[in-house]
Design a protein around this nucleic acid. Structure first.
Lengths: 224, 224
DNA sequence: ACAAAGATGAGAGCAGTGCTCTTGACAAGG
DNA sequence: CCTTGTCAAGAGCACTGCTCTCATCTTTGT
């Protein structure tokens, strides 16, 4: 559908976006649990029931925010995927993910925190959700990281993943990237959710250290 | 205070525990966001306002549940910390953590998911929260894992942590354990929160694989 | 050009929430 | 015995998501 032919269509798409924007703004103070349709409607000068014409339920509004968040994070990672060597790109991309998470705390929580109660993620979210992983995979693929031994089931799962990937990577490398991927988000979540207080907090240096060790683990070197 | 002298005291401590137990039960269907004081009171055959005599607010009840959850998880890890070699103990302890998380999904969410909106963890939670990390540290300490190079800030942070530890570990080892610790919970969170669907799901084998690589990374070998 | 059809915003209302305050009953200690 | 403090209950406040109805306004088909 285009930008909307009739005046009503234009008003509709615009209001839909305004509602989402206001919701994102309100997300910033209190997180998803505190997001209130009524408050969003109030801020927009309309009554809560009118809002249901644009988002059938609170969950639908959340879904829209979740997809946006995945895409924003993915875009940040893709944009930072730049540098003279694969290792530099790896560091840059990981730092961008962390930077986005720190700057957009509650949006990060929305996608990598505990699932919103009663909410079931629709299929629309899986493609945007994969973007960060694809960045890491792309870097490793261009660097040509080595294969490694895998348990049979993990090997099979890696093969299955490889089948749907644009880049070609040996299963052992894929499994290691998957591990690094969970490490990356595990560390960011711990930092954001206050689990590192008392140990590696502030976490800037520790994060860089960990990202470097993960690069080694995956097989990225500085030879470009 | 003892078990309570007067009949009133006994009734009070008992009801306090019953409320918590019922709340934990209700946690199992819907998570913290859906825990309702009124529903708990209803299940106990009392009116919601009466419940406030025992827990001044919803957050206080949540705090009690959080401390219990940390302790239950810590106890599970400590109990599983057993085996002929440090490597075996490492695998067993990590598997126990994952097992507890899978069996107590919503309690895990309570402590390692996104923080409950508006909730600020009191100091009482930090000691129970450290138990799992202490298990990992204990294993590495007894195995005598090697030191390794660290960036200066990370080195300083590791030294600060070491100062408050019962076991003695070189800073480089401590930093690697910290990294493995974030990896462990990152992986469990990803599995539980549905982030692995489409890649390493079911995650049993992948989890074992990852735990093994982390053991290598920390410096645990099979020589005992 | 005009009427039918459809989209929209407002309002009332339902069932639920956390939490507070008051009231009347009961047990404990002086 | 009688005061003091604890307790469960109930009413009530300010919220929440969501549904339904109704009047209005825009688009569309004739």
């Amino acid at each position: 559908m285009s930008a909307g032919r009739t005046a009503r269509d234009r008003a509709r798409t615009e209001l839909t976006r305004e509602i989402k924007d206001e919701a994102r703004r309100q997300l910033a103070d209190g997180g998803a649990g505190r997001l209130s349709l009524r408050a969003v409607a109030r801020s927009l000068g309309m009554v809560s029931s009118a809002l249901y014409r644009y988002y059938p339920s609170r969950d639908d509004l959340l879904t829209a925010l979740i997809i946006d968040a995945y895409n924003a994070l993915g875009a940040a990672a893709e944009q930072a995927d730049d540098g003279p060597t694969p290792l530099a790109r790896w560091h840059s991309a990981c730092a961008a993910v962390r930077g986005w998470a720190l700057a957009n705390r509650y949006e990060y929580e929305l996608i990598y925190g505990s699932p919103v109660p009663g909410y079931r993620a629709p299929q629309d979210t899986v493609a945007p959700a994969a973007r960060v992983a694809l960045v890491l995979i792309g870097i490793a693929a261009e660097a040509g990281v080595p294969d490694s031994e895998l348990p049979p089931v993990v090997h099979a799962q890696s093969e299955a993943v490889r089948a749907v990937l644009p880049d070609d990577l040996p299963p052992g490398a894929l499994a290691r990237i998957l591990l690094a991927w969970t490490q990356l988000f595990g560390m960011i979540s711990f930092e954001l959710f206050g689990q590192l207080v008392g140990s590696a907090d502030p976490a800037d240096e520790f994060f860089g250290y960990a990202v470097g060790r993960m690069a080694e683990f995956v097989g990225l070197t500085d030879r470009g």
